[in-house]
């Protein structure tokens, strides 16, 4: 792709999300969402092979329908209450419509079906943008409309954690597994959003470096299925040793930083006296843990047999920059002791 076009597209991605962040008017928020959807479309289809074009088409139709639904809900709200402000208390019916539309935009559970298929058709860099940056704008909008309809939100969160665990169980395609992991993490964020928005933000802030390092690890190994990961010990031994830490951090095991949001969220849910929801969410994390463990097993805990020539690629110098990956793996493995500081940073 032409670098000028690429820079315009990336600038527009930033512009769209920033516009949604900065807006207090629903029309402007809708414009931001539309700009970021339009800007990522050529990035998704940049290799022009049939799977990429198909994924782009599916993504476009879903996002366009969700954006139109957002505008329709806010128009209905304006028709009922006469207000266009995002922070103004919404009428109940448009608020439910908005919640469902934002869930469709982010890929939460009852309306998540587009996300694994779309992610499967993309290359890993665009998939990374799709599963981190593109979620920010609908996430912030959802935070802002939160005080209404709590039961719908709880349903979305629980269904997302369950589906995100369940769907990834039988997958061997890494991008689909990452899509389901994204669904499950968003479910956790949405679950706590109505009680404590700092915790939802904390979960998002921890989720982004973990996902970044996972995508970058797979990109460094240039592998998109689980069985190509088995040869990664010969390509990047140090990274192969660190990968289980990152994956189990995504799964939320204690000494790693992915444990921090799950711990805080479970504590908050118990504090709000809804132990059933908390237990279902905690148990559904086990599903996710299963497939993270399976990736770790295939990648690190076994050394697959290899011929003599193929055991030496790690001696070759890599050309890509590894500094971002180093920083993000460190963050996603060792942030737990900094939990009080992180919380203090995020609270207003």
């Amino acid at each position: 792709m032409n670098p000028f076009v690429l820079s315009i597209l990336l600038l527009s991605l930033g512009l769209g999300t920033t516009l949604t962040f900065a807006s207090s008017h629903w029309l402007l928020a809708w414009m931001g969402l539309e700009i970021s959807t339009l800007a990522i479309i050529p990035l998704m289809a940049q290799h022009h092979h049939p799977r990429a074009v198909e994924a782009t088409t599916k993504y476009f139709i879903t996002q366009a329908a969700a954006a139109a639904l957002i505008l329709f809900a806010s128009t209905t709200n304006a028709w009922i209450t006469g207000q266009w402000d995002i922070n103004f208390n919404l009428h109940a019916f448009p608020a439910s419509l908005l919640t469902m539309a934002l869930a469709l935009k982010m890929g939460l559970a009852p309306v998540h079906f587009w996300l694994p298929e779309v992610l499967q058709g993309l290359d890993l860099t665009t998939g990374l943008i799709l599963s981190t940056w593109q979620k920010l704008a609908p996430f912030i909008l959802m935070c802002q409309i939160m005080p209404v309809n709590s039961s719908l939100i709880t349903f979305l969160g629980i269904a997302s954690t369950l589906v995100g665990g369940w769907g990834g169980l039988n997958q061997t395609q890494l991008r689909k597994i990452l899509a389901y992991s994204s669904i499950a993490h968003l479910g956790w964020m949405v679950l706590v959003m109505q009680f404590n928005q700092q915790l939802a933000l904390l979960a998002l802030v921890i989720y982004i470096p973990m996902t970044f390092s996972t995508f970058m690890i797979f990109k460094t190994n240039s592998s998109t299925t689980m069985n190509t990961l088995a040869a990664s010990w010969a390509k990047t031994p140090a990274l192969t040793a660190i990968t289980p830490l990152v994956l189990l951090s995504l799964g939320g095991l204690p000494p790693l930083s992915g444990f921090m949001p799950k711990w805080m969220i479970l504590q908050e849910l118990t504090k709000q006296d809804i132990p059933l929801t908390a237990s279902v969410a905690a148990l559904s994390a086990l599903f996710s843990l299963y497939f993270y463990l399976r990736i770790s097993y295939a990648m690190t805990l076994t050394i697959s047999p290899n011929n003599l020539n193929a055991t030496t690629p790690w001696r070759l110098q890599t050309t890509s920059s590894t500094l971002p990956l180093a920083i993000s793996t460190t963050i996603s493995a060792m942030l737990l002791p900094l939990a009080p500081a992180t919380l203090a940073l995020l609270s207003p």
Binding site: I8, L9, S12, E34, I35, L38, A39, P42
Partner: peptide
């Protein structure tokens, strides 16, 4: 800006 962006898209 969005019209320019759409042209490029």
């Amino acid at each position: 800006w969005v019209l320019l962006l759409t042209l490029l898209v």
